[in-house]
Amino acid sequence: MTNILIKLSTMVVLAVGLTACGDRFPGGAGGNIGGIQPGSVNDPTSLAYFQQTIGDRVLFAVDQSTLSPEATDVLNGQANWLLQNTQYVVTIEGHADEQGTREYNLALGARRASAVQNYMVSRGIADNRVKTLSWGKERPIEICSTEDCWSKNRRAVTVVSASLGS
């Protein structure tokens, strides 16, 4: 009981901090429940769990924005997590690889982010909890110029942050 209280109060502090800077954060809180380090990848309420165990991103085929079966598996996990952790909102950040023109890729990134957004909403996440942002080809995560890297850059990343209202 004490542990849970500590955890809740820490969460509030964390949420306030987040509201102020509006950025991503490593997640988790103090305390220790049932041998699981809260905030660690083993804590199913943690952001580390969201990012690493569920997976925070889905990948796309060249010039496509349709969701593959692998992608929908990941998004099902994300949606379930968001249904349970209602204090969070997400921004879906859409990206393209460098094999496209700049403005087209901005539009393509928006289309990919929107595909994920629509899927999340179809899985029961409230519309106002899912925002989108396109980076086009401006922020590659891998920088080589082969399909190895390009396949990882054609992505939509679900960035979790604390809700203003939680």
Partner: peptide, 9 residues
């Protein structure tokens, strides 16, 4: 210019 709404530009 282009405006993009819900993924549609």
């Amino acid at each position: 210019m282009s405006l993009s709404e819900r993924g549609n530009s």
